[in-house]
């Protein structure tokens, strides 16, 4: 960051001579200090998980949920400035509602990601605003069968104009990550926040490509997400944290197409396994060290 102090980093929407928008880069810094957030796109659903750092003993436990629902089938988790995240979520909800009022159907995850990318990008264009101090992960399930338009009564024509296409199938699990610059990509596994490096290297080890076969299931994804958050927290051990996890599956899956919190029992089981896995790793390391000592 050699250009600090040259004056090109004082206002949003201003390019430096080498073509950078420093205010956006600084916004990224705000994200990098936040608790780790990840999303995993599994075969039959999406898991979102968050390392929620506990800043005070006086906070009410298990309240203050940070992973938000948009419409019924989409979840949003973010790292960075909490109020900016709430702004992001509130806009996403407005987009979903406006989509419904136009098309009488839920917004596809890809379209939501696109609209939110455009919205976040607009906050890099003007000196009268600042960029979002968050990176948002958006995960959801698009209905795989044709659904009735909102407000439908009766069954409509069986064939002909307005008739249904038999056996039509699309949709499925989707996952996107939107950065302060407004750029976004689709992901198999996405991570952001302080522990993103550790989380990413774990995600890369997972089998997440549905075309490659033996793609992880939603339930495996939940357990893996818990383990990754616990692992990513290792570098930040002096602070307490709560694990927040949500998921969304197909209509036929455990959440029936809705974005929901992972049930307490399953989350606790996942946390137990995560802790065990971490202890195991420590022991292995210790054993290795011991072996070395013996050598």
């Amino acid at each position: 960051m050699t250009s600090i102090g040259t004056g090109y980093d004082l206002s949003n929407s201003v390019f430096s001579p080498d073509g950078r928008n420093f205010q956006v880069e600084y916004a990224v810094k705000a994200v990098e200090n936040g608790g780790t957030a990840i999303g995993i796109r599994c075969k039959d659903g999406v898991v979102l998980a968050l390392e929620k750092l506990v800043t005070s003993k006086l906070l009410k436990k298990d309240a203050n949920k940070r992973i938000a629902t948009v419409d019924r089938n989409i979840g949003v988790v973010y790292s960075g400035l909490q109020p900016d995240g709430r702004h992001f979520v509130s806009r996403a909800r407005d987009e979903a509602a406006s989509w419904r009022s136009t098309y009488k159907a839920p917004i596809p995850v890809s379209s939501l990601a696109n609209r939110m990318g455009a919205y976040v990008q607009a906050y890099t264009l003007y000196s009268s605003v600042r960029p979002f101090g968050i990176t948002g992960i958006v995960g959801g399930w698009d209905a795989e069968k044709e659904v009735d338009v909102d407000g439908a009564v009766g069954s409509g024509p069986k064939t002909g104009s307005g008739g249904k296409v038999q056996g039509a199938k699309e949709g499925g699990p989707y996952l996107y990550m939107i950065e302060p610059s407004g750029s976004y990509w689709g992901y198999y596994g996405a991570a952001t926040g302080k522990g993103r490096q550790a989380a990413k290297s774990e995600l890369e080890k997972m089998k997440l490509d549905p075309k490659a076969g033996d793609c992880v299931s939603l339930e495996e994804g939940v357990k893996e997400a818990a383990r990754i958050i616990y692992l990513a927290h290792e570098d930040n051990k002096d602070k307490d944290f709560e694990l927040e996890m949500t998921w969304v599956s197909a209509m036929s899956g455990p959440t029936q197409g809705r974005h929901e919190e992972v049930p307490k029992e399953l989350r606790e089981e996942a946390e137990r396994l995560a802790k065990k896995a971490l202890e195991g790793e420590d022991e292995e390391e210790e054993e290795e060290e011991e072996e070395k000592m013996e050598e």
Binding site: L10, Q23, A27, K29, V31, E32, S128, R130, G133
Partner: peptide, 17 residues
Amino acid sequence: NNYDNDSVTFSPQGRIF
């Protein structure tokens, strides 16, 4: 510092003074 004039400027550390 230069970064604390208004609430639309991030500091290089990502703070809003």
